[in-house]
Design a protein around this nucleic acid. Structure first.
Length: 558
RNA sequence: UGGGGUGUAGCCAAGUGGUAAGGCAGCGGGUUUUGAUCCCGCCAUGCAAAGGUUCGAAUCCUUUCACCCCAGCCA
């Protein structure tokens, strides 16, 4: 496996130049809102933050940005913690911690009072419609609210009433007093608090007002001592506001916000809303359905934390919007599995092969290398008999050119066993092939001929006598469009969902003992078929990904 | 038509005034008892475009173009 040289990214370069000037304790955080499961896009953001903490021997916080009780729940908190641990964070290490923004609600309130007392915040009783009207547009300046110049005491009094429950939702908000004609819309007197009479998953019924992101986030960073607050590009517009809140309270330390491009992957999308929609419409089973781009799904499907980390590292971090080819992710994962996955001969879609000249009751043992070229990984036994299973698509009645597998009159190698030549086939009443007959060459025992006669194809097989029935599931892209961003606004993303993205093979055949052997390997490579993960809960095998296959391209030339 | 960003190969991406890294994909060849792996070779006279500065420009200046983000009491 080639571990490539890692160039430091632009954020690390910024940090490097800062620590050259003065010593700095590096402290990063990954701040998901617990309103859904983490997906591969979150993994990029997480690893960016965590790698920096590791690189500079700093600290890392997993922080739940739970400032909106409407969509958040404890279920998601638990799932996110599990995912982050699985990705590789050990929270027993004191450098890694878990925090909740909701634990800071008291402090936010104190800072809100401070801003009111400085004449920098006011309670606005305009309606949502009036607020929208006041904001103006990108090209038109906003207008001041008639409540903008209330007295400090009146503001203090009203904020207290907002939180006491005496005021109904949407009847008032607390706003920062900045500049209604600012060219940056996020600076036009943004809302700090809104009334929501909803219990919070941690704070319970204590609050009737909840802080908005822009008001809260910098303070969360400040409280935790974050040095670099890394977020995605769409928050560039919010940075002046992030700084404004920090600059207008008494503090010494100021975290620095730096933005980077979020991850987009071809043939998938990261919108939590859309993912949830797939679950609600039963297109997928749940957040951890193996077709989902969530961390829980990747785990279930068989992707590894090591490969997810390496993928996040290899794609780099920059400020330009990009669409990473999902193929690259699979390439990274294959590179790991090729070194570590134990091989098995498994027939996914079986058809019977009978060796006419092989004795009826004869049985021979052959041995499959667990990892080719790696003696220490050992071998496992397979038995060979007259009646075998092979893969249905390893025979073709009308083979195209360059088809290396079986057809009438053609010779192939049964891996590890013998050369066989197809003599005839048998069909049922409707014309389906139900059996393939062939003869074997006893001189080719072990799969090598004494006369050095070459055979183009080598196929895998299983003895009918000992085959174990297993279920195997194959997956395709959930999404039909390479780039979800290409879909226009008046189209529905759901129209591009691949509703046949899962194929179940319930009569796949495996060698006995495979379930036991699953304990010895992180994942299997089923020869010529791909990498598979055994799922103990459902007693089946998920195909994580296919092997690279140049034959497919010959078969279906563009 | 306002503000904030970004443009280097099919896809990522390095490069920070000294003459275009690397990876993926692709193509050609070799090895191979997995059409896998592995190995070798090819793949930007060119850096969104046009001008300019300079001995020298992807890097500096000017103009233009394209794309992304912002008008939630979401984050």
């Amino acid at each position: 496996m080639s571990e490539h040289v890692d160039n430091s990214n632009f954020i690390e370069q910024i940090i490097d130049s800062q620590i050259k000037e003065k010593s700095l304790e590096i402290h990063t955080r990954f701040p998901p809102e617990p309103n859904g499961f983490l997906h591969i896009g979150h993994a990029k953001a997480f690893w960016l933050n965590y790698e920096i903490a590791l690189k500079y021997n700093g600290k890392f916080n997993l922080r739940f940005d739970d400032t909106n009780p409407e969509k958040e729940s404890d279920v998601f908190v638990k799932a996110i913690i599990e995912d982050i641990k699985w990705l590789g964070v050990n929270f027993d290490n004191p450098k890694n911690n878990i925090f909740f923004a909701s634990d800071y609600f008291d402090k936010f309130y104190v800072w809100a009072l401070e801003l009111i007392n400085k004449g920098l915040a006011y309670v606005d009783e305009s309606s949502p419609e009036e607020l929208k009207e006041q904001r103006g547009t990108p090209t038109k300046a906003g207008t001041n609210s008639k409540y903008r110049n209330r007295s400090i005491n009146e503001n203090l009094e009203l904020l207290k009433k907002m939180n006491s429950g005496e005021m109904r939702e949407s009847s008032a908000v607390l706003r920062a007093k900045i500049d209604m004609s600012h060219p940056n819309l996020s600076m036009r007197d943004p809302i700090m608090y809104r009334i929501k009479k909803i219990p919070h998953h941690r704070a319970g019924n204590k609050w009737n007002i909840y802080p908005m992101y822009d008001f809260a986030h910098g303070y969360e960073d400040l409280i935790e001592g974050i040095s670099h607050s890394l977020c995605s590009l769409e928050f560039e517009n919010n940075r002046p506001l992030y700084n404004w809140f920090l600059e207008n309270i008494e503090t010494y330390n100021r975290p620095q916000q730096i933005e980077f491009a979020r991850l987009n992957l071809s043939y998938t999308f990261m919108s939590k809303r859309l993912l949830k929609n797939l679950i609600d419409t039963n297109i997928v089973d749940n957040w951890d359905d193996p077709r989902m781009p969530t961390i829980a799904a990747l785990r279930k499907r068989g992707y590894t934390p090591h490969s997810i980390r390496r993928f996040c590292k290899e794609i780099g971090v920059a400020k330009s919007n990009s669409l990473v080819d999902i193929e690259f992710f699979d390439y990274i994962q294959r590179e790991e599995f090729n070194q570590s996955a134990h091989r098995e001969m498994v027939v996914i879609d079986p058809i019977k092969l009978v060796i006419e000249n092989y004795p009826d009751d004869k049985q021979e043992d052959f041995y499959v290398e667990n990892i080719p070229g790696n003696e220490s990984a050992g071998k496992h036994k397979v038995v060979f008999t007259k009646e075998l299973y092979i893969e249905r698509d390893d025979f073709m009645e009308q083979p195209p050119k360059k088809y290396f597998r079986l057809s009438i009159g053609k010779e192939v190698r049964l891996k590890y066993a013998y050369y066989v030549t197809c003599t005839s086939i048998e069909k049922d009443s409707v014309g389906n092939i139900i059996q393939i007959n062939c003869t074997y060459d006893p001189e080719t025992r072990g799969g090598d001929s004494k006369d050095k006669r070459k055979v183009k194809g080598t196929i895998h097989w299983l003895s009918l006598k000992s085959a174990l029935d297993i279920e195997v599931r194959h997956y395709e892209h959930l999404f039909l469009k390479e780039n979800p961003a290409d879909i226009s606004e008046d189209e529905n993303l759901m129209d591009y969902i691949n509703t046949n993205s899962m194929m179940s093979y319930k009569e796949a055949k495996a060698n006995p003992g495979i379930i036991e052997r699953a304990k010895n390997t992180i994942s299997f490579q089923f020869l010529r078929k791909g990498y598979y993960k055994y799922d103990e809960n459902d007693d089946l095998f998920h195909r994580t990904l296919k092997l690279k296959d140049s034959w497919k391209k010959i078969e279906n030339p563009k």
